[in-house]
Simulated scan of single mutants.
Amino acid sequence: MGGALSLTLAALAYPSMLGLDTVSTSGDRIIANTQWGPLTESDRAFVVAVRAAGLWEYPVGFIGLQKGQSEGVKTASEHLIDGHAALDTTCRKIAPMLNITLPNVASPQQIGFVNSMNAKTGKDFDIEFANILRMTHGSIFNTVAKVRSTTKNTLVRALADQANDTVLDHITVMEQTGMVDFDQTLFQQTTPPKLPKSDMTPPPPPAGQPLIVLTPPPTATSTPVDIDAASVSGGGAAPAPAPTPTG
């Protein structure tokens, strides 16, 4: 009963599969008309997916700084912390404007990635770190491009611009570690495991739970979206109307 209820709540909050899967082909259904443009299922799923990515990659950055053996891994770890803190700031700003519920915990699949890395030490950790993160960033890269090219929502478009730059940067620093096995990584990237939606979807937060904040590092160089500039065509910051429930 409890498991079934959890799945139902997750489906209501995040109707599209997230994680490494691409945005659903049916994701063009409009769920709200906002002053920043129509919001589709794919748009909402994308904002949630960016938030969920930060919820595991940001802490992995700190793990990499502690356990990493090579300078390449330590540099990549700094980029994870910096980039995802800035993306998270943008997500937390635009989510209430678009009436999007953000998770506070990554998906079970993403938590599994963290556990896999935590189980490694020494050079094995560095290799696991570089290959998992190169695979996950490569998997989401095409989704970012698809959302950027198709969304009609100004705020989602601005987040996609920022995500595109961040994901490309993270792909690059993972490759610069010199530890990426491209044959294996690209195979995993293009042949993802067939996992149930519950494994790919971050659970919705309990009602009233404050959002976890991914704090930018003191040396932050990544910049969140300028919401005022991104929403200039909308003429304000009123929240989107709640989506109409469907059967």
Rank of each mutant, 00 (worst) to 15 (best):
E175S: 10
F62V: 01
G178C: 04
F182V: 06
M17G: 01
S107M: 08
D169R: 12
R92P: 00
K74L: 10
L20Y: 07
S42E: 02
K197F: 12
P239K: 08
A32K: 03
P196T: 13
I171F: 03
A119K: 14
D88T: 01
S233E: 15
T154M: 11
K93W: 00
P224F: 10
D126Y: 04
Q66C: 04
L7G: 05
P216A: 13
E71C: 00
I63W: 04
T150K: 10
V156I: 13
D228W: 02
T25C: 03
T223N: 04
P108M: 11
P205N: 11
D28E: 14
A76H: 04
D165H: 03
T177G: 06
Q69D: 05
G236V: 11
P241V: 06
S42I: 02
D21V: 03
G54E: 09
T40V: 07
A13L: 07
T75Q: 10
T121C: 00
G236R: 04
P59E: 13
P217A: 14
V156D: 06
R148S: 05
S42M: 06
R44W: 09
M97I: 15
V173T: 12
I31T: 00
A4F: 12
V60W: 01
I171C: 07
G234C: 13
D43T: 04
V173H: 06
T151Y: 01
Q209A: 15
A11C: 07
H170P: 00
L214T: 02
L9T: 01
T90M: 09
N104M: 05
A85Y: 05
V114I: 15
E71S: 11
T246W: 02
H137T: 10
S26P: 00
R44F: 08
G112S: 05
V60H: 06
A237L: 12
P218C: 08
P59Y: 11
I31E: 09
L9A: 12
V50A: 08
A240Y: 07
A10P: 00
G247E: 02
D161V: 05
D82H: 10
Q109K: 03
